[in-house]
Every structure is written in structure tokens, then in C-alpha cells.
């Protein structure tokens, strides 16, 4: 397939930014990229101890429920949170070169996608332990839809967060609280059967709940539910477009704000 030079250049620019992120992230750490496995694995263990053992919450194959949800959540949360300071981290590049700034947001996304990819073998291992074999007809559409909606949502928020954070640094603290609340409002470690009925509306309005449910159907409920995306898909698309619009509006002054 022939590639235009512009496209090839954009691809290369994302590649060098991602490879820089990887090198800096694991620069002078002894365990290197093993950290991208240890962190999500360890937080899953903590949730399992607290909710599975101490609180005795029950769900079918709870460790699988927890790990599948937590890995996906961590992917989402990392894309959002790492974009908060992405412009500040790259200030020397922004002040001296004129490349398309939105590539930094996508660079963060691809870096975190790679981390997410690295955790997949663990998920496969747990699936083997529980003897879960997904059906192709569920796996393919659900995986495609869950990942593309997560991309729109996370990158959209990342765009807005990165740009606004330059002008309003309080946002970092606010986002920390929002992401914590969002985690508890999403079916990450809470089995849906444990949620009182009068609070279930939260899952209806929370796009991450829809994304996590679509993702989990791969392991639990064979089937594809297109009706779920009537609201979910437009919401994610609007968040993405709004975030990108905010970024484009603020972009001309990035270099002088640092």
C-alpha cells in the first residue's frame, strides 16, 4: 500500500515520541518494563484481598472479573492521567520545533496501548485457569467496539486535560479526585449484582460502564448488543470532538504558556 510522505512522517513522529516515552519511563529502573505488569497486577491483588476475601463479594470467577475490568480501567486512566502533563514534559520540544502538537496526545495513547498489550498474556493465563473460551462471534465485535469507544473517550478527555492544564494547573488535583470517583462508579471491581437497584442509573449514564460491560461480555455473556451503543457511541464521539476542539483552540499559545 503506497503511503504519502505526510502520513509516513506522522507515523514516524508518533513512533519517535512513543519510543522516547518508553525509554524515559523505564530509564534507570531495575525492573524495567516489568512494572507495566506489576502495577495493574498488584492493584488487582489488593482489590481481591479487600473485596473478595474481606468483604466476601461473590461474582462468577471473581479474579477474572476483577483482572479483566482492572486492566481495561488502568489503560483508560493512564491515557487520561499521562496526558495531563504531556505538554509540560515536552516543553523543550514545543519551544524549539513546530510539529503537530496533537501527536503528543496520540503518542501517550500508543504508549499506554503497548502497556495494555503487555498485560494481555496475564489475562489469557487467568482465562485458561478458569477454562473460559470466548466465542469468535462475541470476541471480535465486542473487542473492536470496546477498544474504539475507549480510544475516543480517553483521547478526547486527554486532549482537553492536556490543553486546559497549561492554563489552570488546579485541574491536576481535580482530575485526581474525578478519576478516583469514576473508578468507584464503574464496574471495575464491584460485581453488578452487588449494586443496589436505585444506583444502577449511574452505570447507564457512565460511558465507562458500557465499555467495561461490552469488554466483559467476551468472557461472560456470549453475544453482541448493538442497542447498547445507541447512546454510548454518540457520547464517546462527542467527548472526543469536544476535547479535540478545545485543544485546537488553545494550541496556538502552548509555547508561550510554558
Amino acid at each position: 500500500m503506497p503511503m504519502t510522505r505526510t502520513l509516513q512522517l506522522k507515523r514516524d513522529q508518533i513512533l519517535v515520541l512513543v519510543s522516547k516515552d518508553f525509554k524515559l519511563k523505564y530509564n534507570s529502573t531495575a525492573l524495567g518494563f516489568a512494572w507495566s505488569l506489576i502495577v495493574p497486577l498488584f492493584s488487582s491483588l489488593i482489590y481481591f484481598f479487600v473485596f473478595g476475601i474481606m468483604m466476601r463479594w461473590r461474582a462468577e470467577n471473581y479474579p477474572l472479573y476483577l483482572i479483566s475490568g482492572n486492566f481495561m480501567w488502568q489503560f483508560f486512566a493512564n491515557v487520561v492521567m499521562m496526558n495531563g502533563r504531556v505538554l509540560l514534559r515536552n516543553s523543550t520540544l514545543l519551544k524549539k520545533t513546530s510539529f503537530d502538537r496533537s501527536l503528543l496526545i496520540w503518542g501517550t495513547f500508543f504508549t499506554e496501548s503497548l502497556h495494555f498489550l503487555l498485560t494481555i498474556p496475564i489475562l489469557l493465563g487467568i482465562m485458561i485457569v478458569y477454562g473460559v473460551v470466548p466465542q469468535w462471534t462475541t470476541l471480535l465485535p465486542n473487542l473492536l467496539v470496546a477498544l474504539s469507544l475507549l480510544t475516543l473517550l480517553a483521547v478526547g478527555i486527554g486532549y482537553a486535560y492536556a490543553a486546559i492544564n497549561l492554563y489552570f494547573r488546579d485541574l491536576e488535583r481535580i482530575m485526581g479526585v474525578i478519576m478516583m470517583a469514576w473508578l468507584f462508579m464503574s464496574p471495575v471491581f464491584i460485581p453488578i449484582s452487588n449494586v443496589p437497584e436505585k444506583f444502577l442509573w449511574i452505570y447507564t449514564v457512565n460511558p465507562m460502564a458500557g465499555i467495561l460491560c461490552t469488554w466483559r461480555d467476551i468472557f461472560y455473556q456470549p453475544g453482541f448488543h448493538p442497542e447498547r451503543f445507541l447512546i454510548l457511541a454518540p457520547v464517546c464521539l462527542i467527548v472526543f470532538l469536544l476535547g479535540r476542539w478545545i485543544f485546537r483552540k488553545l494550541e496556538p499559545r502552548f509555547a508561550e504558556m510554558m
Binding site: L9, D12, Q13, L15, V16, L17, K20, K23, L24, N27, T92, L93, K96, T97, F99
Partner: peptide, 19 residues
């Protein structure tokens, strides 16, 4: 346009591609 933690060789690639 250099990234201080990266080596000179890595910065050649980074800087050139961004330009």
C-alpha cells in the same frame, strides 16, 4: 529541541523527525 535524558544518537532521530 533535545530531550535531556536521551542519548545524542537518540536525540538526532527525535529532533530530525520532529523537524
Amino acid at each position: 529541541g533535545f530531550c535531556p535524558e536521551l542519548s545524542g544518537r537518540e536525540n538526532i532521530l527525535l529532533n530530525g523527525v520532529l523537524q
